[in-house]
């Protein structure tokens, strides 16, 4: 055959001996336009990575805004950041890392086809995710009570005269500078809010995955959804790994 471009006529079957090392498996989830299950899996994972690139750039804009204003208004960012609770933030970091650990175990369980282990690991991932959101909610509520939510009700008095509010370890700052605490809190809410939104979407997907895992969908060699969701979940973790030091730990030793 001098050329093998196929016209509308079906041609002779070609030699298939070239790539014998590829196992010719068919799983029920195999989609017709992929030649092999492996091609489908690698396409899926590559697609997920590209999606995560868009997420990097999406958060990237916020991170740049943070970088800029932190340098411009460092004196406002320090007291504003010190109002956040390191205990709660640190606990949440640990919780999120634990959740990510169970997600990693879930991926392993799917790969070695342990159905019961997979379901349990996914449930634990979900529970730790929910714990994170709950603690986050407590923190947001605190800021709401202290009128640190940006907008018309934003109140600078705790930054201008900390002593009057019973805060002894903060230096007072000028009202002009204190106005800029609002920018910190906006960035705080935007970044943690965007992050929490990703977690809530993730938890929704987790519930769906748990139901499917319980049905046995991922214990017969089809692990792509678990693996790809794992990538997403770990990416959300990574965002938080940066948010925690950037938002909570700007300067924890101001009075020295």
């Amino acid at each position: 055959m001098d050329n093998s471009i196929v016209t509308t006529e079906p041609l002779m079957p070609r030699e298939t001996a070239v790539h014998e090392e590829h196992e010719h498996v068919f799983i029920p989830q195999h989609r017709h336009h992929f030649e092999t299950e492996e091609q489908q899996r690698e396409a899926g994972s590559f697609g997920m990575w590209l999606f995560l690139l868009t997420e990097i750039m999406f958060f990237g804009g916020l991170f740049f805004a943070y970088l800029l204003y932190r340098n411009w208004y460092y004196d406002a960012f320090v007291p504003a950041s010190n109002f956040l609770s390191v205990t709660l933030g640190g606990t949440n970091t640990a919780i999120l890392i634990t959740s990510g650990f169970f997600m990693a175990l879930a991926v392993w369980a799917a790969e070695v086809r342990k159905k019961q282990f997979l379901v349990i690991a996914l449930i634990l991932t979900t529970l730790f995710g929910l714990a994170f959101i709950s603690i986050k909610y407590v923190e947001w509520h605190d800021e709401w009570v202290h009128r640190h939510v940006p907008g018309a009700s934003f109140d600078i008095s705790e930054f201008v005269s900390p002593k009057a509010h019973g805060i002894t370890d903060q230096k007072p700052i000028s009202p002009d500078m204190a106005e800029h605490c609002q920018i910190f809190f906006f960035l705080y809410f935007a970044m943690t809010g965007m992050h929490a939104l990703h977690m809530i979407i993730g938890i929704g997907l987790l519930v769906w995955l748990i139901l499917r895992a319980q049905r046995g969908d991922f214990s017969a060699g089809y692990v792509a959804p678990i693996e790809n969701f794992g990538l997403y979940w770990h990416f959300v973790d990574i965002v938080w790994l940066f948010l925690f030091p950037l938002l909570y730990l700007i300067n924890r030793h101001p009075l020295k």
């Binding site: 804009g61 805004a65 907008g151 018309a152």
Partner: peptide, 23 residues
């Protein structure tokens, strides 16, 4: 790589209008 940055900048414009975030 580019479109998400547009998404975030328009989100910030929307928030600026709705709640006056000040960025």
């Amino acid at each position: 790589l580019g479109t998400p940055v547009l998404a975030i900048s328009l989100t910030l414009v929307g928030l600026e209008r709705l709640v006056g975030i000040g960025v």
